[in-house]
Design a protein around this nucleic acid. Structure first.
Length: 286
DNA sequence: ATGGTGGAGTTTCCA
């Protein structure tokens, strides 16, 4: 099963690219963020072309800002908008979370609050949002993947220059603690433990992408039953190139088949690490 | 030149 997550920065502006990219990459499950559309507008624009590509679609949007979607061609069950305990900002529950079960995995498409300035009301909201998310995930299914724009760079290695972020959001200890407290595995980093430029976001301004001055804030965070199935995990930088790109690149993760629980009593071959149960994966979140 | 881009939606806010 191929899972992808992409902050498209307006599904309307990105529609031609999105459809071309889906055909090229053939993801089975797609998490989108910053659609910036209402549910009606998203459906009017995309339900037909996405249906033609074989996807079931669930969208949660408010128009203008935020907006998340979940596409699946391997089943899309028990769709939930928001998550239990999700905080409000200035009275509004923002459209930042949608989840569904796809081929046995609970998939969350998430757009974390930006935080704006450290210690602003938006920053406090961001921390509360992560706290509530952690509680909701802990109470949910064991096989889970959080996919999306988490607006936190897990480590300094996820920044082109850590000095450029001193005093700014996305890198503070409190934000990184919230990310780590989710207790999940950052599967892209696990598969590229030493990669110095595993960025997923580059500011539109000042030629940042062309100089590869970016940061990694788009993540797939998986629980052990999912993480141990990861065969590949990468950032699709090509999708950031060319005309009218999003400022984010997609992250793509391939999962091996789930272990089959219906083949009778199994004595797992001890030489196969996939069957010996997960003990430890390197480079979990700091 | 006192800025750099892009998307929202009206005029400035947001990222």
């Amino acid at each position: 099963m191929r899972i992808a997550t992409w902050n498209v920065n307006s599904a309307k502006q990105r529609m031609p690219r999105l459809l071309t990219w889906l055909e090229a990459r053939q993801p089975d499950v797609v998490c989108l963020q910053e659609t910036k559309l209402t549910d009606v507008a998203f459906a009017d624009l995309l339900n037909e072309p996405l249906g033609d590509l074989g996807y079931e679609v669930a969208h949660h949007g408010q128009g203008g800002f935020n907006g998340v979607a979940l596409l699946s061609r391997v089943g899309l069950a028990d769709v939930e908008r928001d998550f239990p305990g999700q905080p409000v900002f200035r009275g509004d529950t923002e459209a930042r979370a949608i989840s569904g079960t796809c081929d046995g995995v609970r998939i969350h498409s998430l757009y974390a609050p930006n935080g704006r300035e450290v210690d602003s009301d938006h920053y406090a909201y961001k921390l509360e949002w992560f706290d509530a998310l952690a509680a909701a995930i802990a109470a949910g299914p064991a096989a889970v993947a959080l996919c999306g724009d988490m607006n936190v760079a897990p480590a300094d290695a996820d920044l082109f220059d850590p000095a450029a972020w001193v005093g700014q959001t996305h890198v503070t200890v409190r934000e990184r603690q919230r990310l780590a407290a989710l207790g999940l595995i950052d599967v892209t980093r696990v598969h590229w433990p030493e990669h110095p430029r595993l960025f997923s976001y580059w500011d539109y301004r000042a030629g940042m992408f062309h100089q590869d001055l970016g940061m990694r804030i788009d993540l797939v965070l998986a629980s052990p039953p999912v993480a141990e199935r990861v065969a590949a995990a990468w950032v699709d930088r090509a999708a950031r190139k060319g005309k009218l790109p999003s400022d984010h690149a997609p992250v793509i993760v391939d999962l091996d088949e789930a272990p089959d629980g219906d083949i009778g009593p199994v004595v797992p071959p001890p030489s196969n690490p996939r069957r010996t149960g997960r003990t430890k994966l390197p480079h979990a979140l700091d």
